[in-house]
Amino acid sequence: MRHTGFTVHDGLLLAQGLGVSLGLFAGTFALGLVLGSAAAVVRHFRVPALGAALHAGLELLRNSPVLVQLFLVFFGIPALIHQPLTPVVAAGVTLSANTAAFVYFIAVAGLDAVGRDQVEAARVYGFSRAQLVRHILAPQAAAFALGPLVGLAVNQLQVTSLVSVIGVMDLTKAGDILNLRTLRPFAVWTMVGALYFAAAKGLTLLGHHWERRLRAHAPPLGF
């Protein structure tokens, strides 16, 4: 008996893979958002040494292939520290750091877009640095950065497809498994592609929805 036809369980396998991809994306994007924004604030206040080091490191991450970063973390770091990493941890670390690198450059541009006169005015009123970030810089920078961040999110969702190489059971890996059994790569990769496409489209719609809501309270951007 041959088991090469598509069954209901294949649908479940793909759905499970999609869930892993989306979960990995959500987790690493959230972490990257926090880390990247924090690095941008460090840069904004010109913290000596730390700011420059962060800038150089994140520039390196932004300008190298994610695949190589994954290999470095998954194969390279365990060889150096003699401690094995699980595929999910390696994928999480790599994607978070990579997202942080892109968020950093978007956030730096957003912070720079806030007028210096506003910062001066806040200083005159006796705002502390934390207050300045919370009430003046962050809201305006966020409104400025939302558009690019939605684009980045769609991109990073696609980047998660690379983690299948180090053995994470994401949507691409599910496609791989399905392909090995059914030997129908044309249909399998079309389905996998369609699922990624639908996820990316959904994410874009969601992003635009949030963008409209956040912008509703933001002053019109003066560019």
Partner: peptide, 9 residues
């Protein structure tokens, strides 16, 4: 909107 790996495969 489709990952490059999937396109390549």
């Amino acid at each position: 909107n489709v990952p490059f790996v999937v396109q390549v495969f």
